[in-house]
Write a protein that binds this DNA or RNA. Structure first.
Length: 548
RNA sequence: GCGCCUGUAGCUCAGGUGGAUAGAGCAGCUGCCUUCUAAGCAGCUGGCCGCACGUUCGAGUCGUGCCAGGCGCGCCA
């Protein structure tokens, strides 16, 4: 559709013998009265040709008229400084609606990603405590992107990287041991930087129910391996359950431990060493990251011989690239942004194409309740968990609110608004469209007017009807735009637009009670709307209810 | 000090590769339910797009410099 007009304009440019370097754009004007499409071609070309832009526009318009053998252009006009405004025939939009009805749930699906494999790593919170609201945003964004990429033909692997190695796990084990000892009636102090959240006490209680006081008097160093593992495993299980409740599932859970056990960290280090990227100072092994764009060189092996977290991460990304993914997408919290340059440096140091890696930094979330920010602090264990938010506002509202904002900006998550089951809540506004259409279909069925055969779409002539057809037709472009920019928030915004148009139509016109032909045509239109709404909602992981 | 993100209506935010009169929700004010779901519709009020230069036919959008907020700058993960 767009491409049709575009190529026609392009062709004219070529006929003039101009180099095609001129940047000509074709866009959907903000103002409805400026047509369905608009191009600035004449203004771009006028300077080059040394002619008046309106004169150039005249020539392009007449050329377009010749080109248009199938009568797709309802009108072509020149406006302002030389814009060419194009109005497509209503027949054109009916054709697109027909396509939407034929394709159903596959409408908007594409093959742009065919043959491409994408690895999406997201959340990957350390297994030291339950997921909080910030993780929820990463989960919503990562999952939505995965769904969008799949819909556009990519082969997607979703992965959770588990940081189950390092000081923090010892700390976690000690914290659990301490809580456990207290429950057993022994005295015990929490470690200095121990995890002091309420959940640790619950974990200790659960564990004690299973093993009794067996470890109560075992020396800490001896008990530690057991407690470290128990704590990590149990917390990870909780994370997995929370994510499942949030409708987020993974294809793989990748443990950092495995990288070490399989020798992948050593292999990555050896690789870098061979490429001359390492050197030693003060007993530690450094990576020459500064020369590759980082602000300074980074330690990979500490003076005491242990590898750093960064070393494992280098190995992890090297491993993923070697699996052959066309593209790696890492979704991180904004607090990790300083880490990006060193990781890119690592890829370059390994001789890999750093452009295969895309890191998306998701900005922070502030919970708002009754107009005031809810304070959070992971250290003291006082934070709002994802679970609590889900219990309070529900999965649909939570996912929707997380995705309603571009992840580049801070998110104020208004719990009070998300929770209201009223007209104020935009989730319901959209879901209501779906429920209303289903209701209409039920009623049509009951009256023996169900949709069948080939509805006479030529009866769709009212402005509200044409606007809806255009909105439905835009869906494939919205989806592919999301896949290109990796910006899922465009989906909810599109859905809100469609919903606006539908509710306006619904209020002004009736589906049933018109002539049988008109009823058929409008039911077809409703089905088209239902299709894109259901499809769009599924893209962001929100349900499309049949009734509300 | 350096780096990343952000600055648009009272509040929260949209504004495809620069385009024509800058949009939505909330909040506030008016109207509309004997008709397929009022979780809805129609309307009103509300703007120096942080500030200043620059690029050009044309800037919320691009560049530079300020100002403000958030987040980072470990042989932690």
């Amino acid at each position: 559709m767009e491409s049709l007009v575009f190529s026609a304009v392009r062709k004219k440019i070529a006929e003039w013998g101009e180099d095609a370097e001129v940047s000509v754009s074709l866009e959907i004007p903000r103002q409805e009265s400026h047509g369905d499409f608009s191009t600035n071609a004449a203004m771009q070309l006028a300077g080059r040709l040394g002619k008046k832009s309106r004169a150039v526009a005249e020539e392009i318009v007449s050329a377009l008229r010749e080109e248009d053998r199938r009568g797709r252009f309802a009108s072509l006009s020149i406006a302002g400084p030389g814009f060419i405004n194009i109005v497509l025939s209503e027949e054109f939009w009916r054709e697109v609606l027909t396509v939407a009805l034929e394709k159903g749930p596959r409408f908007g699906a594409s093959k742009v990603g065919e043959g491409k494999t994408v690895h999406v790593e997201f959340v990957s919170a350390n297994p030291t405590g339950p997921l909080h609201v910030g993780h929820g945003r990463g989960a919503a964004v990562g999952d939505a992107l995965a769904r969008i990429l799949e819909f556009t033909g990519h082969k997607v692997v979703r992965e959770y990287y588990i940081n189950d190695v390092g000081n923090q796990m010892d700390n976690l084990g000690r914290s659990l041991f301490s809580r456990y000892r207290v429950l057993c009636g022994r005295s015990a102090d929490l470690p200095e930087d121990g995890y002091r959240g309420e959940y640790m006490i619950e974990l200790a209680r659960d564990f004690r129910v299973e093993v009794g006081d067996r470890y109560a008097d075992v020396p800490e160093e001896e008990a530690l391996p057991v407690f470290r593992k128990e704590a990590g495993d149990r917390i990870l299980r909780g994370i997995r359950d929370d994510l499942a409740s949030f409708r987020v599932t993974y294809d793989r859970w990748f443990a950092e431990r495995d990288l070490h056990d399989r020798g992948l960290v050593a292999a990555a280090l050896a690789d870098l060493r061979e490429r001359g990227q390492l050197y030693e100072t003060d007993g530690a092994t450094y990576f020459r990251s500064q020369a590759l764009g980082d602000e300074k060189d980074r330690v990979l092996i500490r003076a005491d011989g242990r590898t750093t977290y960064f070393a494992a991460d280098v190995a992890y990304h090297r491993h993923k690239l070697r699996e052959g993914f066309s593209r790696l997408i890492d979704i991180w919290g904004a607090d990790h942004h300083g880490y990006v340059p060193r990781l890119r440096a690592a890829l370059r140091g390994l001789g890999e194409d750093e452009n295969r890696l895309k890191v998306l930094l998701v900005q922070f979330v502030t919970l708002i309740r009754e107009g005031k920010a809810v304070q959070m602090s992971t250290r003291s264990g006082e934070f709002t968990t994802l679970r609590e938010v889900l219990d309070e506002v529900g999965v649909d509202a939570a996912r929707f609110f997380y995705l309603l904002r571009s992840f580049h900006t801070h998110l104020d998550f208004d719990l009070t608004l998300a929770k209201t089951q009223s007209r104020n809540n935009p989730v319901y506004y959209i879901q209501y469209v779906h429920a209303r259409i289903c209701s209409v279909f039920r009623e049509a069925e009951a009256q023996g007017k169900a949709l069948n055969g080939h509805p006479p779409l030529s009866l769709l002539v009212f402005p509200e009807e044409v606007r809806l057809m255009k909105a439905v037709a835009r869906f494939p472009d919205v989806v592919s735009e999301c896949a290109k920019t990796l910006e899922p928030h465009r989906i909810p915004f599109y859905l809100l637009e469609v919903s606006d148009l539908f509710h306006a139509f619904y209020h002004q016109h009736r589906f049933l009670g018109e002539s049988p032909e008109r009823t058929q045509a409008r039911l077809a239109l409703a089905l088209g709307v239902k299709t894109v709404v259901a499809s769009g909602l599924s893209m962001i992981g929100v349900t499309a209810p049949d009734r509300m």
